[in-house]
C-alpha cells in the first residue's frame, strides 16, 4: 500500500506541477497591470486523494492520509497576502449513537440522562491552513458544519425543536469523548503549499478508524468567505485475514461461534499436551 501511495503521490505531483506551470504563464503580467484586477471568482479548486481505498490489515495502527489539491486562476495579490485559506476534512460514516450521563444517586453513580443522535460521524479529521477562527467568522463555520465544535450530529429534516442547552451538553460530551480518543481531531497549519498553486494536506487517522464510506471535503476561503468546495469519496475496508474473519462473523454468526469454540478446545488440548507434567 505504501508503495502504491508514493507512486500515486508522485503522479499527482507531476500532473499538478504541469498544470501549475501552465497556470503561471500569464501570471507575471497580471501584477504589472496598474488597474486592480477585475477577475472575480474564477478560481478553480480541485482535490485528489493519494488513494481511494484504505485497507486495514493486521498491522494497521492508524495512518496518515495525504490530500493534494490544485488552486488555479488565483488573484495573485490575494495569494501574496495569504488571504486564501484552505480547510480539508475527512468525515467518517454517520451512525446513530446514544450519549448517556452518569449522575450521583444517593452516592451511587449511575446512568440517568441520555440523548440519541441519529447521524454522528464515527470519525472526523480536519486540517486547515490557519486556525479555523482566523479563517472565517464563527457563524460561517457553523453554517458549514465545519470544525469539531460545529459538527452536525443530527440529520432531521422535519424534527421538532430540542431543548437547546440540554442538547449542547450531550453533544459537547460526544465531541469531547471522541476528541480524547482521537476519533475526532483537528489541526491547523497542516496544509502546506508545495508551489503557489499546489497544496498538500495531511490528516492523521486513528487506529480504530471505522470501516465504510468516508468523504473528503475541501473548502477554499477567500478573505473569510467560502468560494469553492470539492469532495472525494474514500473507502476504508478490511483486507486479507481481517476481512475474511469479519465477513465470516457477520454472514454466518453461529457457524463462526462453533469455530470459536473448536479453536478454544483445540488450544486448551494442545496446551495440555505441551505442558504434560503430571
Amino acid at each position: 500500500m505504501k508503495r502504491g501511495f508514493l507512486l500515486g503521490a508522485a503522479t499527482a505531483l507531476a500532473v499538478l506541477a504541469v498544470s501549475g506551470a501552465l497556470a503561471q504563464v500569464p501570471a507575471p503580467n497580471a501584477p504589472a497591470a496598474p488597474v486592480a484586477p477585475v477577475v472575480n471568482n474564477t478560481e478553480t479548486f480541485e482535490i485528489g486523494l493519494s488513494t481511494d481505498r484504505i485497507g486495514i490489515d493486521s498491522a494497521f495502527t492508524g495512518t496518515r492520509l495525504v490530500i493534494f489539491g490544485a488552486l488555479d486562476n488565483v488573484d495573485s495579490r490575494i495569494l501574496r497576502e495569504q488571504r486564501y485559506d484552505i480547510v480539508v476534512v475527512l468525515v467518517g460514516p454517520r451512525r446513530p449513537v446514544v450519549v448517556r450521563e452518569k449522575e450521583s444517586f444517593f452516592g451511587l453513580w449511575l446512568n440517568r440522562g441520555s440523548e440519541a443522535f441519529n447521524a454522528a460521524p464515527m470519525s472526523y479529521a480536519l486540517a486547515s491552513s490557519r486556525p479555523l477562527g482566523d479563517i472565517a467568522p464563527g457563524i460561517v463555520l457553523e453554517r458549514l458544519g465545519l470544525g469539531i465544535d460545529n459538527l452536525r450530529l443530527q440529520i432531521d429534516p422535519d424534527g421538532e425543536e430540542v431543548d437547546r442547552t440540554n442538547r449542547d451538553r450531550y453533544a459537547e460530551a460526544l465531541r469531547r469523548v471522541n476528541r480524547s480518543t482521537g476519533l475526532y481531531n483537528q489541526s491547523s497549519g497542516t496544509i502546506e503549499f508545495v508551489s503557489s498553486t499546489l497544496f498538500r494536506a495531511e490528516l492523521s487517522l486513528p487506529a480504530d478508524l471505522p470501516t465504510g464510506q468516508h468523504t473528503a471535503r475541501a473548502f477554499l476561503f477567500r478573505q473569510g468567505a467560502l468560494i469553492r468546495e470539492d469532495s472525494e469519496t474514500l473507502f476504508v475496508v478490511k483486507t486479507g485475514f481481517e476481512s475474511v474473519l469479519s465477513t465470516f462473523a457477520l454472514r454466518q454468526g453461529y457457524l463462526y461461534g462453533v469455530a470459536a469454540v473448536l479453536l478454544a478446545i483445540v488450544t486448551g488440548w494442545f496446551g495440555r499436551i505441551i505442558f504434560k507434567r503430571d
Binding site: 451512525r95 446513530p96 449513537v97 446514544v98 450519549v99 448517556r100 450521563e101 452518569k102 449522575e103 450521583s104 452516592g107 451511587l108 453513580w109 449511575l110 446512568n111 440519541a116 450531550y170 460530551a173 460526544l174 469531547r176 469523548v177 471522541n178 480524547s180
Partner: peptide, 15 residues
C-alpha cells in the same frame, strides 16, 4: 468504582 465520581460522566454507546 460505583461510588467515586467518574472522570468522564458521559459515555457513548451504539444502539
Amino acid at each position: 468504582e460505583l461510588f467515586i465520581p467518574p472522570d468522564e460522566p458521559f459515555s457513548i454507546t451504539r444502539p
